[in-house]
């Protein structure tokens, strides 16, 4: 029986397990390369930074990519240096390399991740659906300052979220933090006024439409470039707003989807709390 075990035995056992884990980790750390020796030159993702994956594909075909002793880049790959504001017509024009990996090179991965988030959100709404509604006993109305202030702040926060996911290929940020920022603005609206509830059906429709937009963009790539989620728009000069092809479109779709999804989750959590 678990409940017969005294508390102290459990704690000692837990400390033992944690100690074994940490000692094991530190034994592994001594085998790891030191900080100075780690270099992107020896990993796969250097071609993402160079924005030239075609080179990697050619080398894989020749069978010369995964050598034991990889030489520095300048000896085996002819490359054109990338200059901010000057280089044009690259394979992927986003200035933010993380964005170009998330949306372009590994876009299919991100589609699966958005699906996981959608399943989690719909699970929350399914589990918390259909609670009994009761009349609130006592109600403390939020003050006038909160009511007005959260509305003004919400407009600014909403604008900032849209800025973050439109400029995802130039500055740090992107669709996921932009959507989270919009959702926290909506959380502020919940706090400012008791009984506030957004248009639930509107949120659901909005979220489904933006999810569909992602898949439709992928299918357009399949038709135009013969590959799912391929970039079908021209890329411009690196550093401009219109420089990254379809990355901005997909990040707008992701931002709207994540924002409406997290707002719906917050709504499902908060609505029954207020009907105490």
């Amino acid at each position: 029986m678990m409940s017969d075990t005294p508390e102290i035995v459990k704690k000692v056992f837990a400390i033992f397990v944690v100690g074994v884990l940490i000692i094991g980790f530190f034994m592994v750390f001594t085998q790891m390369p030191k900080g100075n020796e780690v270099n992107v030159n020896n990993t796969v993702s250097r071609f993402y930074v160079m924005k030239d994956v075609d080179q990697a594909t050619q080398m894989l075909d020749k069978g010369t990519y995964f050598n034991k002793d990889m030489v520095p880049l300048r000896n085996d790959v002819p490359y054109t240096p990338i200059t901010f504001g000057k280089s044009e017509n690259l394979e992927d024009g986003a200035a933010n390399v993380v964005t170009s990996i998330v949306v372009d090179y590994r876009g299919f991965d991100t589609l699966g991740e958005v699906t996981v988030l959608f399943l989690a959100a719909s699970g929350v709404m399914l589990v918390l659906h259909g609670e009994k509604r009761k009349v609130p006993k006592k109600k403390i109305a939020p003050s006038e300052i909160m009511y007005v202030g959260t509305r003004i702040a919400f407009s600014v926060i909403f604008l900032f979220g849209i800025y973050v996911f439109i400029h995802g290929h130039l500055t740090p940020g992107g669709g996921f933090p932009g959507g989270a920022i919009i959702a926290s603005g909506i959380l502020g609206l919940f706090l400012g006024r008791q009984g506030y509830s957004p248009n639930k059906a509107g949120l659901t429709v909005f979220e489904s439409l933006s999810g569909m937009a992602y898949a439709i963009i992928g299918i357009i790539g399949l038709v135009a470039e013969k590959s799912f989620l391929a970039n079908f728009l021209p890329t411009g000069t690196i550093g401009n707003l219109f420089s990254a092809g379809f990355i901005a479109l997909i990040y707008i779709a992701i931002g709207m989807k994540v924002g409406s999804e997290l707002s719906a989750v917050t709504n499902a959590m908060i609505v029954d709390t207020e009907e105490d």
Partner: peptide, 10 residues
Amino acid sequence: LMTNPISSHA
């Protein structure tokens, strides 16, 4: 200027 006094008030 907008948010700091409001949060302190709340």
